[in-house]
């Protein structure tokens, strides 16, 4: 290549920007690389399929998937309401929906405990009427994860709904389709990429949930000890296991990122 070929408009990046930029990049990447370097690769497969790790992994996948399903069931209609219905105070409702996004998860866990705990506002009734209690159960893990992860789904789906042309719904109405049929057969297929993207984000967030889970559901191996909790637990007893679990969570994150960059999702923007 001729030297001319490497010349760019705008000239060189000033050192005063380049230096912190590279430092920032290293700051983000070095810990992850360190994690990979420290991983006990030779014993990794055997540890990965050990009873404890397998149990935590299975529970995590189950709870994150169930939480995502719960979020889809409640969150898609909520997003539709925010995007389509003529709602008084819609701005306020939207703001409230996003609170769990910025709320420290521990606070979410405490709040859930106060409302759904055995002595809680609703929890007491559940216990009284149905003999059913959420805290310190697998169902409690699912509730905690859904609480924290649902805003991701709602925001993503609402964005997709706003971008979708409502005139297609009008066209469906002129063809005799009621609102529910229109929603199922016209609206939902057209926002499917947004729903999938939202569900993937929601699932990833649920999988990594720690604060709300440990506060609301505790740390009972086999019942409420999900991967992040197991990592925390293992750090004190068997650091190698903690590293293995961390590597698995890192791998899952990378896969999620790759999924989100797929064309069928980025095509939405």
């Amino acid at each position: 290549m001729s030297p001319r070929g490497s010349r760019r408009i705008g000239g060189r990046v000033p050192l005063i920007l380049l230096l912190p930029a590279l430092l920032g990049l290293a700051f983000l990447l070095v810990p992850l690389l360190g994690l990979l370097a420290q991983a006990p690769w030779s014993t990794l497969p055997s540890r990965l399929f050990s009873a404890d790790v397998g149990q935590a992994l299975k529970l995590s996948l189950l709870c994150a998937s169930a939480a995502t399903a719960l979020c889809l069931f409640l969150g898609v209609p909520l997003a539709w309401l925010l995007a389509r219905a003529e709602l008084p105070g819609r701005g306020l409702i939207r703001a409230l929906v996003t609170v769990p996004l910025v709320l420290p998860p521990v606070v979410g866990g405490v709040a859930l405990l106060l409302v759904l705990g055995r002595r809680g506002l609703i929890g007491e009734r559940l216990d009284l009427w149905f003999g059913f209690s959420l805290p310190f159960t697998t169902a409690g893990v699912i509730v905690a994860e859904a609480f924290v992860a649902m805003p991701f789904l709602v925001i993503s789906v609402e964005g997709a709904l706003r971008a979708a042309d409502p005139r297609y719904e009008e066209a469906a109405a002129t063809l005799g389709a009621g609102r529910w049929l229109t929603f199922r057969r016209v609206t939902l297929p057209s926002i499917a990429p947004g729903v999938v993207a939202g569900a993937v984000l929601c699932w990833a967030r649920a999988l990594g949930e720690f604060g709300a889970t440990i506060t609301f559901a505790g740390n009972l191996p086999g019942r409420t000890t999900t991967m992040p909790l197991a990592v925390y637990l293992a750090l004190e007893t068997d650091p190698d296991v903690a590293v293995v679990l961390s590597v698995v969570l890192l791998a899952v994150s990378v896969v999620v990122l790759a999924c989100l960059r797929e064309r069928w999702i980025s095509g939405l923007r």
Binding site: R167, T174, L175, R185, P189, S190
Partner: peptide
């Protein structure tokens, strides 16, 4: 609209892109 015996051809047609021509007409 869904209770009026009408048919509408919109300016830019508004055909449902995720359905085939046949499914659009059968809708």
């Amino acid at each position: 609209a869904d209770h009026r015996p009408i048919g509408v051809v919109f300016q830019d047609y508004l055909l449902f892109d995720h359905l085939s021509a046949l499914e659009n007409v059968a809708f």
